[in-house]
């Protein structure tokens, strides 16, 4: 049994079936082998479409399927866990520079991948806003605090109205007339994934905290000193963090 030849013939429809196949009636085995080829292609293209349903909806099958086909040829799945397959699809879309495609399609794919990762991420109870109340009496400690992101937390920043697009496609409504960029915060405090639009200050703060900065560093870096509470509130309300730690004061 030559597995490599069998697999090659499955993945390349222009190749003849592998040698050594028979049919009881002596009929051409190509038709029979095509059942396996169709199964493989159908299953894998549908698996990718399951991960990127809104990209498929936005493009329609006539555009989506050829792109999924290209992805399957260049990045075939390496594991039977298909929930892990598709991470490089947004980059393939971004590299296309195809003027027929919507300019936001790669960002939408990044957001759908972020949603899939969030869906399957470890469960964790989110940090409740009231857990911060005692810290209001310790502003220096709060400034030194580092925030542990929820395992499901993802941030996708876009030059396009990504959250509005995501909502419109989800609801099968017409795309929004909004212009300008949006930052999509992806959260899953319990079982349901949510996509929330946050302003630039909040997104910058979240990105810095995700990167391991202290609250003081993140605040300064995102230029939101004046509106820290406003930038932090949506993150806490949507369960973006699970804990914060305050390192001991550094001795002079």
């Amino acid at each position: 049994m030559n597995f490599a030849a069998f697999a090659r013939a499955l993945l390349h429809p222009d190749l003849p079936p592998p040698e050594g196949l028979t049919a009881w009636n002596g009929s051409n085995v190509a038709k029979r082998f095509a059942v396996y080829r169709n199964n493989v292609w159908h299953a894998l293209l549908e698996a990718l479409a399951d991960t990127f349903p809104l990209v498929r909806r936005a493009l329609g099958d006539e555009h989506f399927l050829p792109l999924a086909h290209r992805y399957l040829c260049s990045h075939p799945p390496r594991s039977p866990v298909l929930a892990r397959w598709g991470g490089a699809f947004p980059a393939l879309l971004a590299a296309l520079e195809d003027e027929d495609l919507p300019p936001w399609i790669a960002d939408l794919a990044r957001l759908e991948w972020a949603c899939l990762e969030a869906l399957h991420a470890p469960d964790a109870p989110p940090l409740a806003a009231k857990a911060l109340q005692p810290l209001t009496r310790d502003p220096e400690g709060l400034a030194r605090s580092r925030w542990r992101p929820h395992p499901a937390l993802r941030l996708v920043r876009s030059r396009h109205p990504l959250v509005a697009l995501h909502r419109a496609l989800t609801e099968e409504a017409s795309p929004p007339a909004v212009a300008g960029g949006e930052n999509a915060l992806v959260v899953r405090p319990r079982l349901a994934v949510r996509v929330v639009a946050v302003d630039d200050a909040c997104a910058a703060l979240a990105a810095a905290l995700l990167g391991g900065a202290t609250l003081a560093e993140a605040t300064a870096g995102s230029g939101c000193e004046a509106q820290l509470a406003e930038a932090l509130t949506p993150l806490l309300r949507h369960g973006a963090f699970v804990a914060l730690t305050i390192s001991p004061e550094e001795k002079p």
């Binding site: 697999a7 499955l10 396996y36 894998l44 390496r78 039977p80």
Partner: peptide, 21 residues
Amino acid sequence: WSSAGGIFLDDLLAVPYDGAT
């Protein structure tokens, strides 16, 4: 079989019923 050469093919593929298999 469903994987060969490091690629998962997502189908339950046939094999010859011989001594090697």
